[in-house]
Amino acid sequence: MKNLATKFENLTIQNDFIFKKVMSRKRICIHLLEELLQIKIADINYLEAEKSLEPEYTSRGIRLDIIVADDRNTHYNLEMQVKNNKNPDTKKHVLPKRTRYYQALLDIDLLQNSQEYDLLPPTYVIFICVFDFFAKGNYVYTFKKRCLEDLELELPDEATTIILNTHGTHGNISKDIKSFYDYVNNHVINSDFTKQIDDEISYLKLDTKVRREFMLLEARLLDERREGKAEGRVEGKAEGKAEEKNAIATLMLAKGCYSLQEISELTKLSIEDIEKLEKEMHTTEQS
Score class of each variant (00 low, 15 high):
Met1Gln: 10
Lys2Leu: 07
Phe8Gly: 06
Thr12Phe: 02
Thr12Arg: 05
Thr12His: 03
Asp16Tyr: 01
Lys21Gly: 08
Lys26Asn: 13
Ile28His: 04
Ile28Asn: 04
Glu34Thr: 03
Glu34Lys: 05
Glu35Lys: 01
Leu37Met: 11
Ala42Lys: 14
Ala42Leu: 10
Tyr46Lys: 06
Leu47Thr: 12
Leu47Tyr: 13
Glu48Val: 05
Glu50Asn: 13
Gly61Asp: 09
Asp70Met: 14
Asp71Lys: 00
Asn73Arg: 14
Thr74Phe: 05
His75Asn: 09
His75Asp: 04
Leu78Glu: 11
Leu78Ile: 15
Met80Ile: 11
Asn85Gly: 09
Asn87Arg: 11
Pro88Gln: 15
Asp89Thr: 00
His93Gly: 09
Pro96Leu: 04
Arg98Ser: 06
Arg98Glu: 12
Arg98Pro: 11
Thr99Gln: 04
Tyr101Leu: 12
Tyr101Arg: 04
Leu105Gln: 15
Asn113Arg: 14
Leu120Asp: 02
Cys129Pro: 01
Phe131His: 12
Phe133Cys: 01
Gly137Glu: 10
Thr142Ile: 06
Thr142Ala: 11
Phe143Tyr: 07
Leu148Tyr: 08
Glu152Arg: 10
Glu154Trp: 08
Leu155Asn: 09
Asp157Gln: 02
Asp157Leu: 04
Ile162Ala: 01
Ile162Pro: 00
Ile163Glu: 02
Thr166Ser: 13
Thr166Ala: 08
Thr166Leu: 08
Thr166Ile: 06
Gly168Pro: 04
Ser174Leu: 06
Lys175Phe: 15
Lys175Trp: 15
Ser179Glu: 11
Phe180Leu: 07
Val184Thr: 11
His187Asn: 12
Phe193Glu: 00
Asp199Leu: 15
Leu204Glu: 03
Lys205Ser: 13
Leu206His: 02
Thr208Gly: 10
Met215Val: 06
Ala219Arg: 13
Leu221Arg: 10
Leu222Thr: 09
Arg226Ala: 12
Ala238Ser: 11
Lys241Ser: 09
Lys241His: 07
Lys245Cys: 10
Ala249Ile: 02
Thr250Met: 13
Thr250Ile: 04
Gly256Ser: 03
Cys257Asp: 03
Glu262Thr: 12
Glu265Ala: 11
Thr267Glu: 02
Thr267His: 02
Lys268Pro: 00
Lys268His: 07
Ser270Trp: 02
Leu277Asn: 00
Lys279Met: 07
Lys279Pro: 02
Glu280Thr: 03
Met281Asn: 13
Glu285Asp: 13
Gln286Asn: 07
